[in-house]
Design a protein around this nucleic acid. Structure first.
Length: 466
RNA sequence: UCCUCCUUAGCUCAGCCGGUUAGAGCACCUGACUGUUAAUCAGGGGGUCCUUGGUUCAAGUCCAAGAGGAGGAGCCA
């Protein structure tokens, strides 16, 4: 197929050649003698200008080509006589592949609010903003695989359907094939899940971590990258019911190795976006956030601050907002840091990404490794400006007795985790890992304000359209 | 789930202290214009003022409930 993309035509050498291109019309301008079509095919943020002389094309044809129409153009690539572009296509033949009724087509050649575009998510990939965001999203996803592959990690596919509700990361979506109107019942009158498809109650996964650990204790270095589901009734600009998560898990890493990897990993991803998506970032910067590119460069160039939870609490207790009573929530050792506290540490005190580590054990998950002080665990959270927690991770408890004691203390159903406990009985090893929320990364890199605008078709409470 | 705010033309919004025929910009249609850059200029069409109920001589405007949306909080990635 002798078809060019807009990107190829704009960035290649040589002109006056015959070219064939297909795409969607963004705007049409013109007069009695000539029409200009701005054509975009998604290959890059830029359009290519199609010049159509009115004596070559019928008025009837030109009237059917409006904003949104899909067309195929045969013509020659020439230097532009106009100012806004270096090259353009002088059209010899135009075929309409799909019309778009100008009166009814919702996307206009003007700015739309992001809220409106969410209501027409089936059409928003055709906008500059979503083209840019989705190309950046792709670049980041690709860079994740590249990074881990170069470091000798193996991509491990963990299950999406889980029979365990002990993953401990939130409310789950039930998976069942039972008839909701007339389910089989146990003698006690409860739903009898032994009659269900898997012979037990099953849910969509909230984390692949526990299975990731099983993989790491055999393959050494693994990572997962897949969809994750949380049935929390969270209505915020930072939460989705279906999102993508990256969870590396490394045998023989301790908490410090874990923090080093997390920092290096994020810096690599951001630098890849800067390198490969400069046009898209430039557009987002001009349109939404002039500080975007500086903020990204800053993350790549400066080393992240690292403080223990205990130090973080001391910083907060000595802070201006604390002393003046500006914090809504109290600060004291043993309670979790609130959004306002995290934001103070990142945006005011350190003014760069911060890794907080060694949290009190009572506010963290059962699988985190207990420190020698008996009070804290080897946990770490990476906090970013504007979006808050982007990574949560820890060194895992590899000592069987300590792990089992913790499971009992926290009333976690031990029998559901027999396989997890067995890895600590046979050839256990120190290991660590973390989880990165992919959409939160895309949110940071694109500078978008709402997580629903960095995934093509967002799933949130009360919304599963498209 | 909690708190606050919003809902008027296809889109973005104005609409005063409740008052007579509800406005603007953009989009769309028609016309003008020899190369435009979200083209420009002139004219035209376009309304379930979110829904239901209430107060009032009179409701887009006031009150109540509901629906939808946004921001913040909680939970977390």
């Amino acid at each position: 197929m002798n078809l060019y993309s807009v990107k190829q035509l704009l960035y290649q050498e040589g002109q006056s050649q015959s070219v064939h291109i297909k795409g969607w019309v963004r705007t049409k301008r013109g007069n009695k003698f000539v029409n200009f079509l701005a054509l975009n095919d998604g290959s890059c943020i830029k359009n290519i200008q199609i010049v159509a002389d009115t004596d070559k094309f019928s008025e009837e044809l030109m009237n059917r080509i409006n904003t949104g129409a899909c067309i195929a153009v045969q013509g020659s690539l020439v230097s532009s006589q106009g100012k806004g572009q270096s090259v353009e296509i002088h059209a010899k033949d135009i075929v309409i592949l799909g019309e778009a009724d100008a009166e009814a087509y919702p996307l206009q050649k003007k700015k739309h609010t992001l809220e409106f575009l969410r209501e027409i998510a089936h059409l928003r990939p055709r906008t500059n903003t979503f083209g840019a965001v989705l190309r950046i999203r792709h670049t980041l996803a690709f860079a994740i695989h590249e990074y881990f592959n170069n470091k000798g990690f193996f991509y491990l596919h963990t299950p999406l359907i889980t029979g365990s509700d002990a993953e401990g990361a939130g409310q789950m979506f039930r998976v069942t094939t039972l008839d909701p109107k007339n389910p089989p019942l146990t003698p006690e009158g409860n739903v009898d899940y032994s009659k269900d498809f898997f012979g037990k109650a099953t849910n969509l996964t909230v984390s692949g971590q526990l299975e990731g650990e099983l993989g790491a204790m055999g393959l050494g270095l693994v990572y997962t990258f897949g969809p994750t589901f949380r049935a929390e009734n969270s209505n915020t600009s930072r939460h989705l019911a279906e999102f993508w998560m990256i969870e590396p898990e490394m045998a023989f890493y301790d908490i410090n190795d874990n923090m080093d990897l997390a920092e290096d990993f994020i810096k690599y991803l951001v630098s890849q976006a800067l390198l490969k998506c400069s046009d898209d970032l430039q557009f987002l910067s001009e349109t939404y956030d002039p500080e975007l590119i500086n903020r990204l460069k800053n993350v790549v160039e400066t080393s992240f601050a690292r403080v223990s939870y205990t130090e973080a609490v001391e910083i907060l207790l000595q802070s201006q907002p604390y002393r003046k009573g500006k914090f809504e929530y109290p600060v004291s050792w043993g309670t979790d840091l609130q959004s306002e506290h995290e934001r103070y540490l990142v945006e005011k005190h350190f003014q760069k990404p911060v890794i907080v580590n060694n949290y009190p054990k009572d506010i963290k998950a059962f699988y985190m490794r207990q420190n020698e002080d008996g009070k804290t665990v080897a946990a770490m959270d990476v906090l970013f400006p504007q979006i808050g927690e982007i990574i949560g991770g820890s060194q895992r408890e590899e000592r069987y007795d300590k792990l089992l004691t913790r499971i009992k203390e926290m009333n976690i159903p031990e029998h559901e985790l027999w396989w997890y406990l067995e890895t600590r009985q046979y050839g256990t090893c120190p290991h660590a890992g973390f989880g990165l929320g992919f959409e939160r990364l895309v949110l940071f890199v694109t500078g978008m304000g709402n997580i629903r605008d960095v995934i093509p078709f967002p799933r949130t409470p009360q919304n599963a359209d498209f």
